[in-house]
């Protein structure tokens, strides 16, 4: 959980840092990304229309109102998942590259079905989103396996660059052992950590308002996404919000007592 939230914030973050970015919703039939990006009332044509040749790519791309460099390609609400074909997706990605897009973020649906496969097939780099729980980590592990065995890069004998993003992390619960810790997840998945996004009520607020949480510079989740984008662009940024907050001397002494 947190893929669409992550796609919206990372694509916004890249655009805010001056990179021409497109974000594509591969979750055909559900359509969440346009809600989180607050463009749902501006959707005329969608990804499947472009693949079927019912509209041009330019007609379907929606320009983000907040930043210059960001465009959204929404999913269709009415179509079947099988509408996505390898050839169709490849054509759209090529065309986006020709239009000068530096980053194309593909928001994958859940699971390891056709839609997820289409979203990852052409990837150069992948941000694998995991929650700090055993079942989520297992799913991420499977996706990493598919990335390195079934993607275009894998077929060519190359490797997709992997990034691990842990989200909905609650340091207090991790410290109590109610959730996996960052180190545990990192170790199980043996993948370089791109960022840790804390569990934060600002995320829900942001998606209800249709503003990606990265714009909320006050919130921990917003800051953590900002750091993750900087790391994606090659900057060395220290991880934060990993440990429980110190609740003053008294509570610390108290905790040590027990």
């Amino acid at each position: 959980m947190g893929k669409t939230t992550t796609s919206s914030s990372i694509s916004s973050g890249l655009a805010l840092r001056g990179h021409k970015t497109a974000v594509i919703d591969f979750d055909i039939g559900l359509r969440n990304l346009d809600l989180i990006m607050n463009v749902e009332r501006r959707v005329v044509y969608d990804f499947v229309n472009v693949i079927n040749g019912e509209s041009t790519l330019k007609q379907a791309l929606i320009k983000d109102k907040r930043t210059e460099n960001l465009f959204i390609l929404p999913a269709s609400q009415t179509r079947d998942k099988d509408a996505l074909t390898v050839e169709g997706v490849e054509r759209v990605l090529k065309e986006l590259a020709e239009l000068g897009f530096e980053y194309i973020i593909c928001d994958s649906p859940a699971g390891i079905e056709h839609g997820a496969f289409m979203a990852l097939y052409f990837a150069d780099e992948a941000v694998v989103v995991a929650n700090p729980e055993v079942s989520s980590v297992r799913d991420s592990d499977r996706i990493l396996g598919i990335l390195q065995s079934k993607s275009r890069k894998a077929e060519l004998g190359e490797r997709v660059i992997e990034h691990l993003l842990i989200t909905r992390y609650n340091p207090e619960r991790a410290a109590k052992g109610e959730m996996l810790g960052v180190k545990d997840v990192e170790e199980i998945l043996a993948t370089k950590l791109l960022g840790v996004i804390p569990e934060c009520e600002t995320v829900l607020k942001a998606s209800n308002q249709g503003t990606p949480v990265i714009y909320d510079a006050e919130s921990k989740a917003g800051k953590a996404y900002g750091d993750a984008v900087d790391r994606l662009l090659g900057k060395e940024v220290e991880h934060r919000f990993l440990d429980p907050e110190h609740r003053g001397l008294f509570s610390r002494l108290f905790r040590r007592g027990v």
Binding site: I112, D141, R142, L144, G145, Q148, S149
Partner: peptide, 8 residues
């Protein structure tokens, strides 16, 4: 030299 993932 790479991890063997779940499902592989």
């Amino acid at each position: 030299d790479t991890p063997i993932r779940s499902g592989q």
